[in-house]
Amino acid sequence: MTTWIRCHWDEEDVWFYFEVDAEGWVARQVELQGPTRTPIAAASLAEWEQTYGEGDLDAYDSRFGITAERPISEWEGHNPEQLTSEEFEEVWGPARRQIASRPR
């Protein structure tokens, strides 16, 4: 079962939005920073794995970022807020478009 959550990291003023699979692994992740919620990452694990297989991982990482490397259930101090898939998509789509439109 897929779930969607968000949480805030106060120290850096970053909102994290996650799409999490049944095993707790992050499938997609968005990071928005500051009061204007500027997208700093919008990564997909499936895209990352495909790019890894193609050998162009640095380009993907530098543009879209990476997803969390361990299941969310292992995180300490994590207090997630549940989202609907629609709420996640409302953040994912604009963040991806904004990051993709930036010069490389």
Rank of each mutant, 00 (worst) to 15 (best):
Q82L: 14
T84G: 01
R70Y: 15
N79H: 15
G55M: 07
T84Q: 05
R70C: 13
A43C: 08
L83Y: 05
I66M: 12
T51H: 09
T51E: 08
A42W: 03
R37F: 07
V14L: 04
D56V: 15
A46D: 13
D58C: 08
P71A: 09
W75K: 01
W4M: 04
T51M: 10
Q82K: 12
V20H: 01
T51F: 06
G55T: 07
P80F: 05
P39R: 00
L32R: 04
T84A: 05
E69P: 06
W25M: 07
L57F: 09
S73G: 13
Q50G: 02
A43V: 05
W48Q: 13
E69D: 14
I5T: 11
W4Y: 12
F18I: 06
E54N: 11
P80A: 06
W25S: 02
E54C: 09
S62F: 15
T67W: 01
E81P: 03
A27N: 11
Q29P: 03
T36H: 14
L45R: 08
Q29N: 08
L83N: 04
E12L: 09
R6V: 05
S44N: 07
W75D: 07
W9R: 12
A42K: 04
G65I: 03
L45A: 03
Q29K: 09
W9S: 00
G65R: 03
P35R: 10
R70E: 14
S73I: 13
E81C: 09
F18V: 02
P35Y: 10
S62Q: 14
N79P: 10
Y60M: 06
L83F: 05
D61F: 15
A68Y: 09
W48H: 14
A42I: 00
D58R: 12
L45E: 07
R63V: 00
G65P: 00
T36M: 12
P80Q: 07
F64R: 04
L45H: 03
P39F: 00
Q29S: 08
F18Q: 00
V14S: 03
Y52A: 15
A22D: 11
D10H: 12
W15R: 03
R6L: 08
R37C: 01
R37L: 03
T84P: 01
D21W: 02
E69Q: 14
P39D: 02
W15S: 00
E12N: 14
G65V: 01
S62D: 13
P71S: 10
N79A: 15
Q82W: 11
A46C: 09
T36A: 15
D61W: 14
T84S: 08
Y17V: 00
L45S: 03
P71N: 07
A22F: 10
